[in-house]
């Protein structure tokens, strides 16, 4: 990045630092960063790391809002650093902190073990209703069947919805918005046959009923997924399961 790209504009980027081996607690550190109008917050952080302070740690990969690595609190809002531009902070300063509600590993890097364990638990893949041989051909689906779940498949696991969710902040056992969107993505797929198994998680004490319908999760989603809608649909379904299980014949199912 050469000087000629920057038109002499400078922004003050305040970063919440935390280096566990030397810092008792997190503290704000400010950097003066020259920038041009096409620079994202992520590029601002990269400028700091390359030119001002090599000890700064943050996650990033694709720079185009598809990998979900650079989620952080930017002026208090959960956002992707690559999709947020320095020109949009006219006060000449922006504060960058690690995603809310997660343990901080170092600086802007959070620990996502909790999310990954939950992701694994919902079996985020299609478990076919009926196995088909290659000779039987592909699993067909109509456009209407695709519409039912397609938006939920856009989730990039960036965790912004978790940083937005006050209930996850209060109770990290809550499966949370992103996992519910993904759970719904598979349960609502006409080719999938494992909905009953996944509903045990949705209807559990860690499940959908922890949600108080705040809806901020859907507002912050950078991929226009609507996790609040997935949670709501599954509240109805879990309530149905709760009452109807008493009416259903016992059979082999639980």
């Amino acid at each position: 990045m050469s000087e000629s790209h920057r038109n002499g504009k400078v922004i003050r980027i305040e970063v919440l630092r935390y280096r566990p081996e030397q810092d008792e607690e997190p503290f704000l550190q400010a950097y003066e960063v020259p920038f041009s109008d096409d620079m994202s917050v992520l590029q601002g952080l990269q400028y700091i790391k390359d030119w001002l302070d090599g000890t700064l740690s943050f996650r990033w990969s694709c720079r185009m809002a598809i990998c979900g690595s650079c989620g952080m609190m930017i002026d208090g809002e959960p956002r992707l650093a690559c999709k947020t531009f320095l020109r949009d902070f006219p006060a000449g300063a922006v504060r960058v902190e690690a995603l809310a509600h997660f343990p901080v590993e170092r600086d802007l890097v959070i620990r996502m073990d909790d999310f990954l364990a939950k992701l694994e638990s919902i079996k985020p893949w299609i478990i076919p209703k009926e196995q088909r041989s290659i000779a039987q051909g592909e699993y067909l689906q109509t456009p209407a069947q695709l519409d039912v779940y397609e938006q939920f498949s856009s989730c990039i696991n960036c965790l912004l919805c978790y940083a937005a969710c006050p209930q996850y902040g209060l109770n990290p056992d809550f499966v949370g918005p992103g996992i519910m969107a993904l759970l719904h993505r598979y349960n609502a797929d006409s080719r999938d046959g494992a909905a009953a198994e996944r509903m045990e998680i949705a209807g559990s004490e860690a499940g959908v009923f922890n949600c108080t319908a705040v809806g901020y999760c859907s507002e912050v989603c950078p991929k226009h997924v609507d996790p609040a809608n997935a949670v709501n649909q599954n509240k109805t379904r879990a309530a149905g399961d709760y009452f109807l299980r008493l009416a259903r014949p016992k059979g082999g199912a639980k």
Binding site: E200, I201, G203, S204, E205, A206, G207, F209, A238, A239, Y242, F243
Partner: peptide, 8 residues
């Protein structure tokens, strides 16, 4: 996973 009684 304990089933939640919240639906009531």
């Amino acid at each position: 996973m304990k089933r939640s009684n919240a639906p009531i």
